Simulated scan of single mutants.
Amino acid sequence: MLTLYYHPLASYCWKPLIALYEAGTAFTPRLVDLAQPDDAALLERLWPMRLFPVLEDGDTVLPESSIIIEYLDLHHPGPHRLIPADPKAALQVRLWDRFFDMHMESPVQEIVRDALRPESRRDRQTVAEQKEKLDRAYIAAERHLAACDNDSWIAGAFSLADCAAMPALFYAGAIHPFYAHPALSEYFTRLTRRPSAGRVIEGARPWFQYFPFRQGIAAQFLA
C-alpha cells in the first residue's frame, strides 16, 4: 500500500494528491504536522530535508512532488498518462511543470514566508519583487494559453503540468490576483472544476484559516 506523507495546506502536496485522485490509486494519507516533534522526526527520517510530500511504496521512499508523480505514472498508472510517452510531448509537460513550480510557487512561498514573520522583520521590497515575478509569469502563461485550443490543458492532455498549475494558481491568485488575464483565469476555473482538484481543495478547506492570505481565497472555496 502506498503512503503519502503530506499536509493538506501545503501546495506541493496538492500535486501528487491530484495525480493519485486522477488515477484512482488507493493510498494511505498520512498527515504530518511539523509542530509535533514526533511528526517532524518521522519526516526527517524519511527525507533529511524535512520537506513534504514524501511517498512510501514498500522499500521505495521518494520526496519531491514532480518525482513522485513520475513514479506513480510508471508504477501505479491511471487510465491516462500524466507524462506522455512521446519524448517531445513529455518535454513540454516537464517544461510547464517547472514553470509553475519555479515562477509561481517559489514567489508565492517567499511572500508567505514574509507574511509569517513579525511585522518588524518584514521586507516590502522582497514582496514587491516577488509580485513582479508573478506578473511576468502571468503574462507568459496568458500568451501560451491564448494560443491554445479553448478546451486544451497547459500542455495538451491533462498532465503533470496541470497538477502543478492548480495549486500554484490557487495560492498565487489569493495573494496577487490575475483577473486581468482572461485565458489564465478561464484555465484556472477549469482546473478547479476538475473532480481531482475539487477533492484536494475540499481536504484543505479546514486548514485555510491558517493561510495568511485567507481573505484572498474566493468565497466559493471557503464554503
Rank of each mutant, 00 (worst) to 15 (best):
G24A: 12
G24V: 04
A26W: 05
F27Q: 12
T28Y: 00
P29Q: 12
P29L: 09
R30S: 11
D33E: 11
L34N: 06
L34Q: 07
L34W: 00
A35N: 08
Q36R: 15
D38L: 12
D38P: 13
D38I: 03
D39P: 02
A40T: 06
A40M: 09
A41C: 06
L42M: 11
E44C: 05
E44A: 14
R45N: 15
R45F: 04
P48E: 03
R50I: 00
R50M: 10
L51I: 02
L51T: 07
L55R: 06
D57E: 04
D59S: 14
T60G: 02
T60K: 09
P63V: 07
P63Y: 02
S66Y: 00
S66G: 11
Y71T: 05
Y71F: 05
L72G: 04
L74I: 00
I83W: 02
A85C: 10
A85L: 14
P87M: 14
P87W: 05
K88W: 02
A89V: 03
A90V: 04
L91I: 06
Q92G: 11
V93L: 10
V93W: 05
W96V: 01
R98C: 04
F99V: 01
F100R: 08
D101V: 01
E105F: 00
S106F: 02
P107L: 02
Q109S: 15
Q109Y: 08
Q109V: 08
Q109W: 07
E110F: 04
E110C: 09
E110D: 13
